[in-house]
Design a protein around this nucleic acid. Structure first.
Lengths: 270, 270
DNA sequence: GCAGGTCTGCAATCCAGCGCACACTCGCGC
DNA sequence: GCGCGAGTGTGCGCTGGATTGCAGACCTGC
């Protein structure tokens, strides 16, 4: 099933976007392969610390009515034509949350790993008009409807506190990124971002065995989206990092070799 | 009393900051004039919607133990040498929350008007290591200690929800600013910011009588700090706006004349 | 009403990073 | 294993905006 057959994935509000499948900001659309999905590692709501305070019985109750959807690479999880009406939990795969300018350029707000929650703004009455989310790999996503949320979560003080913490972290991260973007050169931002990614996408058992500790799965273009820079500029600084021995590069993969070197680069101001 | 006599206002951690009162990021320090403080318009906790759900009795209880402090222009409310250990409520005056880079350049995160709450990150376990806050006018600020907060607020589900909403709004604003900074030219950001300021600092009875609706009290330099740009660059675009008739300028004051014109400028992408 | 500091205007110069173009090469899919 | 497309290296002109330096205009306090 091609995503082209999913009309709701189209975005009709973009000024310069004429036809579906021709989105300048989503070049890597592919056919979907239903066989390659990961098996269910955990039920939707386990392992998500938003719900950590719930009793097993309560979890049970919630889980019953949580539908689960699958998305192929490039497929939109939500957009303006399909506005957020639910809280999403990423079960497997990876999702990119981003914004689009009128001229088609994008900024990536976050690249989410399994276990992440998104669409949280809905919980506090925000609308998220402007945000898009797309799968960048085959992904399985649970979604709680607004009603689920309102009835079971908002009312619960334990959950409300968790939500506040979640949002607090996010505020801190955003403030950091904002000041970095304003005050630091590209190289510094790139170094910092690599360090962050390297520790947030932690070493799996497999990658550790292969000596790939600190390996990030990301393309230059995706990284550029996070940095608020062009692909070319990003490639440039990455080459320099590689030349310095700070990192090693492969296609769609970057391995941090000298985090200390990156750290000092991250501190430069101009 | 000069702020020079307030040792705790000094910042010793900045790389290039040698002496107090010589902070490159805080050029407008002045003597403090105790007579010019506004009178108490409202008690600390009224009018702050964070506490809107509390009963009058509860409010009473809280208010009793809320100390109140006064700050003169340029005086630091908190900084790295005096880290956040409280929740602040701005009663009167105006406060700038900002960050400082190693080379002394700053980015303003927010300019707060009376009734605003800040230091909220503390509520959710964030540290705010990097944030500074300074009064830009004579200001009166109430501060709840950590203990006040933990005992009376965190536990209360109504408050927790308010906090979540507060942080949610903040996330939305930050995401917006981040994408604007990354994807939009200075002129567009400036226009947008002016519009936001014009409506967030609403028309007072006095200014309405004087026909000053939509007047913002801000210097080019302060605006530049918000935009992540230089004073010169900001002055340039403001001159252009004035030439277009979008705004009228006076010292430390900008009046929006043609919000429609600004809106269209704000939409430009490059 | 005078003095000093703040705020704003202006111009010349410089430069990081963008835009564009293209060549290459890796590796996935067939 | 072969081919094609996604991912990457590179160069160069261009430009938005930073930098620097200064000059005048406006307040505010004395």
């Amino acid at each position: 099933m091609s995503i082209m057959e999913t009309p709701s994935a189209c975005v009709h509000h973009l000024t310069h976007a004429s036809t579906c499948g021709d989105q300048p900001w989503s070049p890597q659309r592919r056919e979907r392969d239903p066989l390659s999905f990961a098996t269910d590692d955990f039920t939707c709501l386990d392992e998500v610390d938003l719900f950590a305070d719930l009793s097993p019985a309560e979890m049970e109750g919630l889980e019953q009515m949580v539908p689960e959807r699958r998305f192929g690479p490039g497929e939109l999880v939500f957009s303006q034509s399909e506005p957020v009406s639910a809280l999403f939990v990423l079960k497997s795969g990876r999702v990119r949350v981003f914004r689009v300018a009128e001229d088609g350029k994008t900024l990536t707000l976050a690249i989410l790993e399994p276990g992440a929650v998104f669409g949280e703004m809905l919980l506090v009455g925000q609308r998220m008009y402007e945000n898009y989310a797309e799968a960048i790999e085959d992904s399985v996503i649970c979604q709680l409807t607004v009603e689920d949320v309102e009835r079971h979560l908002i009312a619960d003080p334990r959950i409300a506190l968790r939500i506040a913490k979640l949002l607090g972290d996010q505020v801190a991260r955003l403030e950091e990124r904002l000041t970095d973007l304003a005050l630091r050169p590209l190289a510094a931002r790139a170094a910092k971002t690599l360090l962050t990614l390297a520790e947030s996408a932690p070493t799996t058992a497999l990658s550790a065995r292969l000596g790939h500790g600190g390996t990030i799965r990301i393309t230059h273009e995706q990284l550029a989206g996070l940095l608020g820079a062009t692909r070319e500029g990003t490639s440039k600084v990455l080459s320099e990092f590689a030349a310095q021995g700070y990192i090693r590069q492969a296609r769609g993969r970057i391995t941090v070799k000298d985090s200390q070197g990156l750290r000092s680069t991250a501190r430069t101001t101009s």
